[in-house]
Nucleic acid binder design. Structure first.
Lengths: 164, 164
DNA sequence: TTTGAATTTCATTTAATTTTGAAAACATTA
DNA sequence: TAATGTTTTCAAAATTAAATGAAATTCAAA
């Protein structure tokens, strides 16, 4: 399987511990609603001592260039992966952001917060539309607004735990 | 569309506000990794003044009996929906648990906690397997353990916000 | 028992998501 | 500017998840 002629770029196979870490990231990213390949790209970058070329990532993870490109685009967009384009070097290199903040930020800002805020507006509209006398329905909506409110207060709390 | 002959069971069509609430639940449940039909079953029960038969749920949501059965099984398993079997009545009826606790409990205990705890064990094993001298790798694992630890401390905090 | 309605189960279908692969676009340098 | 290697894009394929529908099961009432 291994080619003993000098490789152009360093792309050692993944060590056993790296495999384990990748699996860990796959589970974590899944919680955040992000697919396996994205998790693995982040994982392989997290494990690597040095920045990697997209090409390295493809080779180590055995994924297509398309997947890598799309995945890296998403991850750099989230700020969980950084792209550098060193002068005098044709390929860009990628590094994993080492703090958890960005990833959690994605979860909170992209998955949670929008649902909470649109939820609030809609709930208030609904409440407005329900006739005064329908106490039962009005109360149900009020309970939902209360959940919404509690969740809203919880988010910053969670953030602080991870940012400091 | 409506049959004016006396209906066996009361199964009024969903009111506009109920549709809105269902959509809200769909979004919320999605965050928790639960599919649309499950969210809608919970939603229709949440909105209803009175307990509903499985049959009512099928009719209002226009889903199959199989879906309803599976969905109700899952939801009662989580404790977010309660099943009652009144004596002298052949069908069971279902009610939505009104507090958010159970739902959040599911998210924390089923989605989050297992990943955190197996993660911890595995990380410690990995750390044990990495040679003493590989400081870089060891440090990466230690950072992950730290994330894990922070998340672990965050969970109870979140719970308390919603249970009282 | 037997009947009949309600429910459950699960193989199949349908739908949604993720990944690929090949063509186009881009960029570097000869 | 041509030649070469890299990256991006996006339609199509593969994979995965969810919903259906029909057969099997359950269970109260006759």
């Amino acid at each position: 399987m291994k080619d003993s002629t000098a490789p152009k770029t360093s792309a050692p196979e993944l060590a056993p511990w790296e495999h384990e870490v990748l699996e860990l990231f796959v589970g974590m990213f899944e919680t955040f609603g992000l697919p396996k390949s994205i998790a693995m790209i982040y994982g392989v970058l997290y494990c690597s001592d040095e920045p990697l070329y997209q090409e390295d990532i493809c080779r180590r993870l055995e994924i297509s260039a398309g997947s890598a490109s799309q995945g890296l685009k998403l991850l750099t967009g989230l700020g969980t992966v950084h792209r550098q384009s060193p002068v005098g070097q044709r390929q860009s290199v990628y590094t994993a952001e080492r703090s958890m903040r960005r990833l959690l930020g994605y979860f909170i800002d992209v998955q949670l917060r929008p649902r909470l805020s649109t939820g609030r507006e809609r709930l208030e509209q609904i409440l407005h539309d329900i006739p005064e006398e329908d106490d039962v329905a009005r109360n149900k909506i009020k309970v939902l607004l209360d959940w919404q409110h509690k969740a809203d207060r919880a988010l910053p709390l969670i953030s602080t735990l991870f940012t400091r």
